[in-house]
Write a protein that binds this DNA or RNA. Structure first.
Lengths: 213, 213, 213, 213
DNA sequence: AATGAATGAGCCTTCATTCAT
DNA sequence: TATGAATGAAGGCTCATTCAT
């Protein structure tokens, strides 16, 4: 039951794709195994059951995501709160773009109540919140950020960061914006920067520095 | 097959609740009929099938939502683009709060690919986009709004407006913000106003008017 | 879900036959439904699941069996302990013969450990033991029975009564005795009577009465 | 494929235990291999398949059992029919007690119809019947036994001998008799002796000898 | 001698739906 | 209008078994 079997990987790939397209509950293990080109009993073999496969998809995505933030936090003292937050946002967008299958599915499936999800996700999001709050408070203390309410800010930031994921169909088919394209991400990043500039940067400093219009 | 049978209504209530809790695919027709206290054959009788019930839930929510915008658009010439947009945002938040069962489920289910959804939803969202764009362009033309890209703005606005819905669990269990409480909605509205002020209001006018910090 | 649907009855008949032939675990719900000529979902519909069907077969057999003993006990004061026990044995053999499908399966399946069986069966057997012990003790007190140990006697009696069931194949294919035939039952009943005469009847009374050689 | 591999033995032990607890069909190959602490492919390797393992368990038990009777028959001319039968019964009870895992399972599984069982078992039981009949007929001819019908007697004897096995749960949980304890076996042996005395010993001889009350 | 990977068949159950009443 | 009976399809999962190593 090696961690790097080809069968195992093909199952994960198929699952990510189908979960993201149809959602977890609308995807059958037979769907997954058919797409992976393997026998469906392998899902039970490698992940115990369908939920185990879900759990693996969730945690492996979230592990990487948290590591990204964690590693980034180390730059807080070098880059300062503003630089740190700015580059963090950039990297999160990039990360979501390169992992958009998992990302969309995690955020989508997340809305629904499942004890499984809740237990797993709470842990991750609590850590994420802690990291973000740390950056914010450092900024407020140093006078570079306004005195924002961290939860309120985090919720809005999350809304902005995940909008291209959660409204992907809408974005593409109604707005003709294609979140997967590099061009879009660059533009969208600028928008979030601008939001950030006006919303949490301390205006006096901003004006003093003559930054960002 | 009257439109106002008690049986019919109890089915809708049960469906909305369960769809929003577990999602469409994880909810069985028996779940719904059990919660509604009626025989499951009634679902076929009133809505043809499970998809018909879904369709009804989607469209009745979206109908009301679109009407809200539509009616609002009529105030465009009286209140002006800024006032119109401002009060529209307020009403959308209020509408989502009082219809949060349907709202959360519509946006959640929306992420997934289903020919049904696609057909139904595209029509609505296209109209919504048209209305919002109308307001925006009126504002830009009148000089009260900056020259923003409507799609980009709409996507961000959507992200902000739906964040309390789509990240409801996260909001409550990690951030301790409770989107259903009136207090929250009021505070969140202010945040969006502030975002709007900085993000699309023409800065010269803003400064001239000495408005909003 | 009426208690007397034809579908329901055909399922029970098929189940009893197959359980007794192949045993519970070797019988699939498809086997049962195929033999009953109904859709396999009906098993779930009428008995919740395969275990529920088993449980029904067990309890309905045991209910009838216990009632038989219970009704019989009422003759204790009329027929006296000896007559009562004698006719009880006769009726049990007759009952087992006319319900041999259920009987063989209940005693056979009983050997195996299943929390289900244990819970259900214990209650019944405890009652059975109580009834038998009542008869025995009445006989001992009245001097008509020897001072036998009730458990020991009951175990042997059980062994004798169930032998034609539990060793049915052996009986038929090796010994050429056919427990289902009336002739066999009559002969076997005599054998048990004889065992009873020598084994628990008080010898002094027996000799005095000049009974049974 | 040596006959005495440790792996092989651990499989047999695990199988005997699980077959006796859950029955053959309720026991999976994985259950067995897990309990034996070996890879489940070993079962194929050593016994061809699950049925082969069953077959081995049956035959190795029955071989030993038949040998026991066979060896015993040699004492017929020394000990005489009564002594021979008496000590045979004693040894069968002892044998069943020390092999109760296999014994209970063999008799339990025996009830069910399986071409496998039938083929295997018939041979053994036929031999057993032959041996027992030989003893009986020797006794009848010598005047020490009454003219009993061998099949009838064998069936009853079998019922009595296997009662503690086949009604093991019942015996322990309802009657509080524990067949595995030495004390029980001794007491039970006496009971069977008494049955034998009254049931097949020629009464004149018995009275003349003044034996056994 | 023994294993882990992989399979196809089959398991029990639940599903959405139909239909006579 | 509303129901209970019944169904065929599909669900997730476990099974005994094979095979290369």
């Amino acid at each position: 039951m090696s961690r790097n079997s080809e069968t195992r990987n093909s199952i994960i790939d198929a699952a990510l794709y189908l979960f993201h397209i149809k959602g977890f509950h609308a995807t059958s293990v037979r769907d997954i195994s058919a797409r992976a080109g393997v026998n469906s009993a392998n899902i039970s073999y490698y992940f115990k059951n369908k939920n185990g496969l879900l759990e693996h998809c969730l945690t492996s995505f979230l592990d990487e995501y948290l590591q990204l933030i964690e590693h980034h936090l180390e730059t807080l003292f070098i880059a300062g709160p503003e630089g740190c937050l700015r580059s963090l946002i950039k990297e999160i967008l990039a990360f979501q773009r390169s992992n958009h299958l998992a990302a969309r599915f995690v955020y989508g499936e997340l809305s629904f109540d499942s004890s499984l999800n809740r237990e797993i996700l709470s842990t991750y999001w609590t850590k994420e919140k802690y990291y973000l709050t740390t950056i914010l408070e450092a900024g407020v203390e140093g006078g570079v950020f306004r005195k924002v309410s961290p939860p309120m800010f985090i919720l809005q930031l999350k809304g902005l960061l995940t909008a291209p994921l959660l409204h992907a169909h809408y974005s593409m088919e109604v707005l003709y914006q294609f979140p997967q394209e590099e061009f879009f991400t660059a533009k969208y990043l600028d928008e979030i920067y601008e939001y950030m500039d006006h919303h949490i940067l301390n205006p006096y400093i901003r004006i003093a520095a003559g930054m960002h219009g």
